[in-house]
Design a protein around this nucleic acid. Structure first.
Lengths: 180, 180
DNA sequence: TTGACATACTCAACAATTTGAGTATACCTT
DNA sequence: AAGGTATACTCAAATTGTTGAGTATGTCAA
């Protein structure tokens, strides 16, 4: 149940509505944790029933009401409890690698196309992340929370770069590999 | 439902029992697709009802009977159909990065320990993969299927190395970062 | 003025994954 | 003789994740 802990981490910095948490996920957490709005709303409901968060309804003019969620002491305790548990590397499930394995039985040409498509996707993400990194580096005295957020962004940057490099390696291999 | 396609890819090379498929996953597919025995058995049942695979029961002396599964023409057609569909990068969910984000609110010292633990885990996997790569490189004329399997291993190698490099980067950052 | 987009949340159904127990045999070590 | 490990598979429950519909209001551009 690490989704709830990710939400706790986000709420540790500031109180937010479900909708805002969802946006925060898209903007800055998405390189290592993705969750849909529905998941977040449902999780917040569960977390509230466990006493990890509370909410206050805020009426807005011209917009629907919103529920601003805040972390409680119980929630902070839970975050601290979870924090010291060892984490295992996340299991990976990569369709593209399954295709590499299947390619000799299906089509190497299709694989080549797919690799080029994927390389492009990863390049686009990399460029996004580079822009975020540049924004961080332009800050004269980034606060502690930003410095740690930057470390997670570094992981994202490396990850995308690594995919690009591997795609290039495989495309290069496919050029040289003799059919048999 | 890409688990079924991974199984189809494995069965394209050779017919195997559920148990053997599970072992194959652990040995050579695990760097990009993990599945438990239960998942594989259940998936094989579904795949058989769709006509993608068939099985033959093999009686064994001193061991339980086993069901050897083979890919059918329908199964191969399905693999080919799936193969040309574009794949999206897999959503990532990394507990460790959530911990980096939460660290300023919890404990930077615990984070440091956890990073060292994780670095070690990734290093062990890297060493495993390097041994597999060496075994491949020792083959004088690797068959096509092996050459493609090696490409997936290259992804695993890069992935583990990248984690190690990032852990080092963060540990280095934590040494220099001044508290505030 | 129509349609796209943004805010803000709820509910339901379905699919996938995880966890754990259960059944059975045989080999090998202590 | 007991315990650990390996082979080989089944069933069920709980949790998690995905998909899509539904409700409501406001802004902005074509």
């Amino acid at each position: 149940m690490a989704l709830s802990h990710t939400i706790l981490a986000v709420l540790s910095r500031e109180s937010l509505s479900g909708y805002d948490i969802s946006k925060r996920f898209e903007e800055s957490v998405s390189c290592y944790w993705q969750a849909s709005q529905q998941q977040i709303y449902r999780e917040l409901g569960k977390m509230e029933s466990q006493g990890w968060v509370t909410h206050e309804t805020v009426l807005q003019a011209g917009k629907p009401d919103k529920k601003i969620y805040s972390i409680t002491d119980v929630g902070h305790g839970e975050l601290a409890r979870w924090f010291v548990e060892p984490t295992e590397p996340t299991p990976i499930r990569e369709d593209l690698l399954v295709k590499v394995l299947a390619a000799p039985f299906v089509s190497i040409d299709s694989l080549r196309q797919e690799l080029q498509r994927r390389r492009q996707l990863h390049l686009e993400k990399l460029i996004d992340y580079q822009a975020m990194a540049a924004a961080y580096q332009a800050m004269p005295h980034p606060p502690k929370t930003e410095r740690f957020r930057y470390l997670t962004l570094r992981r994202g940057l490396r990850y995308e770069q690594d995919w690009i490099d591997w795609c290039d390696e495989v495309l290069d291999f496919l050029k040289q590999d003799s059919p048999e």
